[in-house]
Design a protein around this nucleic acid. Structure first.
Length: 874
RNA sequence: GGGCUCGUAGCUCAGUUGGUUAGAGCGCUACGUUGACAUCGUAGAGGUCACAGAUUCAAGUUCUGUCGGGCCCACCA
């Protein structure tokens, strides 16, 4: 069984083999774990990466955190499912492919036609999907591939159709007219977050519609004023209050307008003239005002960006041309009062940079405010808010709860239809004014299918249950199969940047479909910035392919570098130095294992990991106690999502306690095989969720079983704590080594040490061999309870103990050093006395702290006395 | 305009309910190393915890304000 470990750990040689071994074992699938029937389940659905591009380092962070949670819970005995998938990312994908085709062939989607374009998209999709899955495996992700899903595969299409139909029948989904962001070039609506802003220098024109109109208005777009149906003023504005409610018939540049004066608090009195021309058809805010005031809506600009019919000489002109014409006209009539330069943000299409035209258009919406019988008369918004308020869903970090609620409260109906070709088709047919909504086309002639598709978040919002067999696994309000076993899921882990876009939608969709939360905890990780602290983006080209890092340092090193030194919700910088440091650590762990295994006979390999072996010596007791504390602490930290702190404690134990001390002790004291194997096994178990490859590689070199499904250890309560004694011995050893190096004593030169201590003489006697042999270079060692000073010795005080190193001494240097020490102590004593003289402190601080402070003073004083004594004797 | 967040060593960042002389990694300096490990070891230098005030016996930690980074949302007539 025993496999010789290489001198240095080589991730490249091990990782792929180990991943295959895991995958073959079948244990990524919870159905194959041998669990009692009542085992609790633990589920995370992987936030499906967009198939627009390969994974970047941010995805690695996500995978590292989720795999950590999953592996920990799997080892802790949960029915653990991590469900993989990818997202079709409708608009983003279509745009990416269109762009690719355009740069390669110069063709647009209209040249290709719907079918050909979709074919191209699917080809593209298969290639990136394959790349993404490869990258995901390379990270060591223990995903259940047998349940892999895609937001646009057959099952999800059925689920989406069903959801749409259910929502339509309940009146949650409705068709309505609303202002949308329209790109006249792409001929499509854009979601609010697909609109970009560009600062531009424009002109703000101030003018009256006609000579008899009582006030002037200001606008940057005079041509849209052809569609004005009102002028809004602030209700508190004294100048205009008297006009509110009045109506005017005006002749605006040859076109008749009917203008009502309305009041709205959103109007700022000190912008322009304080009077705002309301154009309901071409401005979001104006639309809202029109709804509130029952204004009529006049469309001025059409889908091509041209002026509609019915506006006389302006009809058919581009908006830009119409604007110039109107400006000229206004000037001719002497109505133009002012032209000012103005810097404002122009909305442009994120794809083609064309200025956005806000247009009214028939779209499909999800109502967030409709009260639903199936939700006990509450609306989706109320349900989704309540879940956060009652902490049925908690956020990590907590502050995102507030942000979520804030956003939720201001949520408007969600426009779900998109004028693109790639995506879920809307299951609706039209015949004249008739609308049919169903899974298949209605019978009869003349029905035309809605040619829009659904917002990508509609399908990804269903991700927690569409992947678990909904709707088949949900009949008459009863969950069956996977849905019953795994929903609601436990944790949603994702980037805080899609808290609003995605998380909130998942919560609403789950309430609608199942009347339950989709998950109970939301862990939000930060963004990985580049080495300069800038956001990574495709256009800047500063992204990092995880595969490069994995090839150079190994997946474990990359994972650990992303897990350590970071906190939830905060951004971190990508750092190759950090990965390198973790690579070094992993090699250290490897060598610790190599040392232990090489110095242990094979018969000890079966030492159980879940049974504390008997301790022979002080150091045995100490390290076993430390391991016990480590198990306790790491478990708690993982439960609390404190990954970084858990890893730091593991690191501290591995390197500073085990490698630096216990292994050194083990070279002096013998018969430690059982303890060493016990420590190694537990260490590998505890590290496994963080760095699965190297731990499994070590494990398989001396075990037949799989580390991946080895039980998580339990801490015990009855281990003695020997930290004090061990610290004393360590301090003595360190002090002697330091004295040696300060006095420049050759390593070969042997010293005799005499140690005086009053209380701990027995402990020190027992540890004499260790003190002698742990690179202190001491030839003989005497330990006495008390006694006379030893002349011509190097004097090393360590707490209550004084060590005399008899051998070489440089009196001048020694005196110098001691004087420095003396001054330092005096300063500390002063401060301590001051503190203890403060009557408030003594009377009001907890007693534990006061006594600790007193003891501290005592120690300082004793040490000072000793040093002073020594100085005078020199 | 509304909200959030960050400011701790040269750099990158930890620091849970306030409580010993504030930590780590990298970097730096010096020394060392053929037997687990140079992907290493030992030691050292380096901090007014952005600034000001408040609460407290006690503040990196709580509160208020200021300055300086970053982010989100809304608006931009």
């Amino acid at each position: 069984m025993k496999k010789e470990l290489e001198k240095a750990y080589n991730p490249g040689e091990n990782e792929d083999k180990i991943y295959q071994k895991w995958e073959k074992s079948g244990y990524f699938n919870p159905d194959n774990l041998n669990l009692p029937a009542d085992a609790k389940s633990y589920t995370i659905v992987l936030p499906p990466p967009n198939i627009t591009a390969k994974l970047h380092i941010g995805h690695s962070c996500m995978l590292a955190i989720e795999d950590l949670l999953i592996r920990y819970h799997r080892m802790a005995g949960y029915r653990t499912l991590w469900l993989p998938g990818t997202d079709h990312a409708a608009i983003a994908t279509q745009m990416a492919v269109e762009k690719k085709i355009f740069t390669e062939t110069g063709k647009t989607r209209h040249d290709l036609g719907r079918e050909k374009l979709l074919e191209e998209i699917w080809n593209f999709l298969y290639s990136t999907q394959a790349a993404i899955l490869h990258q995901t495996r390379k990270m060591g992700s223990s995903l259940d591939w047998s349940r892999e899903a895609f937001t646009l595969d057959k099952e999800r299409q059925r689920a989406v159709n069903r959801m749409f139909i259910d929502m339509y029948r309940e009146g949650v989904i409705y068709r309505g007219e609303r202002i949308v962001n329209w790109c006249p070039h792409c001929h499509s609506t854009l979601a609010d977050d697909e609109v970009e802003y560009k600062e531009q220098h424009g002109k703000l024109y101030t003018f009256k519609y006609s000579p008899e109109f009582p006030m002037a208005i200001s606008t940057t777009r005079p041509e849209t004023k052809l569609g004005d149906t009102a002028v809004a003023v602030n209700p508190k504005d004294k100048r205009y209050q008297k006009y509110i409610g009045q109506e005017y018939q005006v002749n605006f540049c040859g076109q008749p307008l009917n203008i009502k004066i309305i009041a709205d608090r959103k109007v700022e009195s000190d912008f322009g003239t304080g009077a705002l021309g309301v154009t309901p058809a071409h401005s979001m805010v104006d639309w809202q005002m029109a709804e509130a005031n029952n204004l009529s809506i006049v469309k001025v600009i059409n889908e091509d960006g041209l002026i509609h019919q019915g506006f006389g000489k302006y009809s058919g002109l581009t908006a830009e041309a119409a604007r110039q014409l109107i400006i000229e006209e206004l000037k001719k009539q002497g109505l133009m009062e002012k032209e000012e330069d103005l810097v404002n943000n122009l909305s442009i299409c994120y794809r083609c940079d064309t200025p956005i035209e806000p247009l009214p258009s028939k779209q499909w919406f999800v109502s967030v405010d409709k009260k639903l019988a199936r939700l006990g008369g509450q609306s989706l918004k109320e349900k989704a808010l309540e879940a956060a308020q009652t902490r049925e869903i908690t956020f990590i970090p907590e502050r995102f709860n507030k942000r979520y609620q804030n956003w939720m409260e201001n949520l408007h109906d969600w426009c779900i239809s998109r004028q693109i070709w790639f995506g879920h088709e809307i299951p609706v047919w039209y015949r004249g004014e008739e609308i049919y909504c169903g899974e298949t086309a209605p019978t009869g002639d003349g029905w035309i299918k809605d040619d829009n598709t659904l917002d990508t978040w509609f399908s990804s919002g269903m991700w927690t249950f569409s992947t678990l067999g909904w709707p088949d696994n949900y009949q008459n309000g009863v969950k069956t199969g996977d849905l019953k076993k795994f929903h609601p899921t436990q944790v949603l882990e994702t980037g805080y940047d899609i808290l609003t876009l995605w998380v909130s939608r998942m919560i609403m969709m789950s309430f609608f479909a199942l009347d339950e939360v989709p998950f109970s905890q939301v862990y939000l990780h930060g963004t990985i910035l580049d080495e300069k602290g800038k956001k990574m983006s495709k256009s800047k080209g500063n992204g990092v392919d995880p595969l490069d890092a994995i090839t150079e340092y190994g997946a474990d090193a990359l994972r650990l570098s992303l897990l350590m030194g970071s906190t939830p919700g905060n951004d971190t910088r990508y750092s190759t130095e950090k990965i390198e440091a973790k690579r070094n650590f992993i090699n250290k762990l490897w060598n610790i294992a190599r040392f232990i295994l090489n110095s242990t006979e094979e018969k000890y390999f079966s030492t159980p990991a879940d049974q504390v072996p008997a301790a022979q010596t002080l150091f045995d007791q100490w390290i076993l106690g430390e391991m016990n504390n480590l198990i306790k602490s790491v478990t708690v930290r993982l439960e609390n999502f404190e990954f970084s702190l858990a890893a730091e404690e593991l690191d501290e134990f591995t390197w500073n306690k085990l490698a630096d001390w216990y292994l050194e002790v083990a070279k002096v004291e013998k018969n430690k095989e059982e303890i060493l194997i016990y420590l190694l096994k537990n260490l590998l178990i505890l590290w496994h969720p963080f760095i699965p490859f190297v731990t499994e590689a070590i494990w398989e070199s001396f075990n037949d079983s799989l580390l991946m499904i080895t039980a998580w250890p339990q801490a015990t309560d009855n281990l003695e704590d020997r930290k004090m004694e061990v610290d004393l011995v360590k301090n003595i050893i360190i002090a002697i080594r330091n004295a040696r190096s300060e006095h420049k004593i050759e390593p070969a030169k042997k010293l005799t040490a005499v140690i005086y201590g009053h209380k701990l003489t027995k402990v020190l006697n027992d540890q004499a061999e260790i003190i002698k042999n742990l690179r202190t270079g001491i030839e003989s060692l005497e330990i006495k309870e008390s006694g006379e000073d030893v002349e011509k010795a190097i004097i090393v005080p360590v707490g209550e103990i004084t060590i005399y190193l008899i051998g070489l001494i440089d009196e001048v240097k020694e005196k110098e050093r001691l004087l420095k020490e003396q001054a330092n102590l005096e300063k500390l004593i002063d401060r301590q006395i001051q503190k203890l003289n403060n009557s408030d402190f003594v009377s009001r601080a907890p007693e534990k702290i006061v006594t600790a402070e007193k003891e501290k003073l005592n120690n300082y004083q004793q040490e000072l006395a000793k040093i002073t004594n020594i100085i005078t004797s020199l």
